[in-house]
C-alpha cells in the first residue's frame, strides 16, 4: 500500500514537471469496484489505481476523463482521449474497432442475479447495460433484453420489478448481492458464466507505440505480483488472481 501511495506522489510530482508524454485515459466512473466517483467527486477504484501505477512504470503523464459508457469507444476513435480503462472486456467484435493491451484482469465470470434463484434466464426479462458483452449474450440467449445506460440502472430495474434478472460482471454484482439482505440472490447454475477474454485497456489501433508501453507495464506488474495485490485489495476474496 505504502508503495502505491509513494507512486501516486511521484506521479503528481512528474505531472508537475510536465516532462512525460500526456495520455488521457477515459473511464465510466459508475462501475464499482472497477471505477467509481468517490465521495470527494474524484475518480477512484481498481482501474484508477492500476492505471496510475501503469503510467508511472511506462513513464507517462496520465490524466483521467469521465465519459458515458455508450459513447466511450467512439470518443476514443475520434481522439478525445487516448485510452479506455472501464472494465471493458476484450471481445472479437470490439477488436475490430479498437486495439486492446493484454488483459489486466483474467477472463472473469459474468453472473445473473435475481430476486428469485429459480428464474429461467432464457425466457425471463433480463436487464443489462447497453452495448456490453452481457447485453449481447442476453440478446443471443433468446431472453427478453432490457437495456440501460448505466449498470446501476440495470440493477435498479430488477429491484423495481421491471426486469426479472440482471446480467453483469460477477465482480460488480458481488457487493450488491451481499448487501441486499437476501433481496437479490444468484440465479441457480447461472452465477458463473465465463465471457470474453478478460478485461484490458483499449487504445486506438494506430497507437501501436502506446500499446507496447502499456503491455510492458502490465507484464512487469504481473511479474512482481503487484497486480495480484491490487486485485485482492479491490475485489477481496472473490477476485481471480493471475
Amino acid at each position: 500500500m505504502n508503495r502505491l501511495m509513494l507512486a501516486a506522489a511521484a506521479l503528481a510530482l512528474s505531472a508537475g514537471m510536465g516532462m512525460a508524454q500526456t495520455v488521457r485515459i477515459a473511464t465510466e466512473g459508475a462501475y464499482p469496484p472497477y471505477n467509481l466517483v468517490n465521495d470527494a467527486g474524484e475518480v477512484d477504484g481498481f482501474e484508477v489505481e492500476l492505471g496510475n501505477e501503469l503510467c508511472k512504470r511506462a513513464e507517462l503523464d496520465c490524466t483521467w476523463v469521465k465519459n458515458d459508457w455508450d459513447s466511450i469507444i467512439s470518443n476514443l476513435n475520434s481522439s478525445n482521449y487516448d485510452a479506455i480503462m472501464a472494465g471493458m472486456s476484450i471481445t472479437e467484435e470490439r477488436k475490430q474497432s479498437v486495439a486492446f493491451t493484454q488483459n489486466y484482469i483474467p477472463p472473469t465470470a459474468s453472473a445473473y442475479a435475481a430476486p428469485d434463484a429459480g428464474v429461467d434466464v432464457t425466457t425471463a426479462v433480463v436487464a443489462a447495460q447497453i452495448s456490453t458483452i452481457q447485453a449481447q449474450y442476453v440478446a443471443e440467449s433468446g431472453a427478453r433484453l432490457l437495456e440501460f445506460a448505466t449498470p446501476d440502472e440495470a440493477v435498479g430495474a430488477v429491484r423495481d420489478g421491471q426486469a426479472e434478472a440482471v446480467f453483469a460482471d460477477r465482480d460488480f454484482l458481488v457487493p450488491i448481492v451481499n448487501e441486499s439482505n437476501g433481496a437479490m440472490v444468484w440465479v441457480e447454475g447461472q452465477d458463473n458464466i465465463p465471457l470474453g477474454e478478460g478485461i484490458g485497456m483499449a487504445l486506438r489501433q494506430s497507437d501501436t507505440e502506446l500499446k507496447a508501453k502499456f503491455d510492458a507495464a502490465i507484464t512487469s506488474m504481473k511479474d512482481d505480483g503487484t497486480l495480484n495485490q491490487l486485485i485482492s485489495k479491490w475485489f477481496g476474496e472473490e477476485g481471480v488472481l493471475y
Binding site: 467512439s74 433484453l145 432490457l146
Partner: peptide, 22 residues
C-alpha cells in the same frame, strides 16, 4: 425509459449507427 429488446425510436437507432460507424 429503457429500450426494450432494442426496440427504440428513430433517434435511438440513429444514435446506434452514429456510435457504431463513428
Amino acid at each position: 425509459f429503457p429500450a426494450f429488446r432494442q426496440q427504440g425510436d428513430s433517434l435511438y437507432y440513429a444514435n446506434y449507427f452514429a456510435d457504431k460507424t463513428f
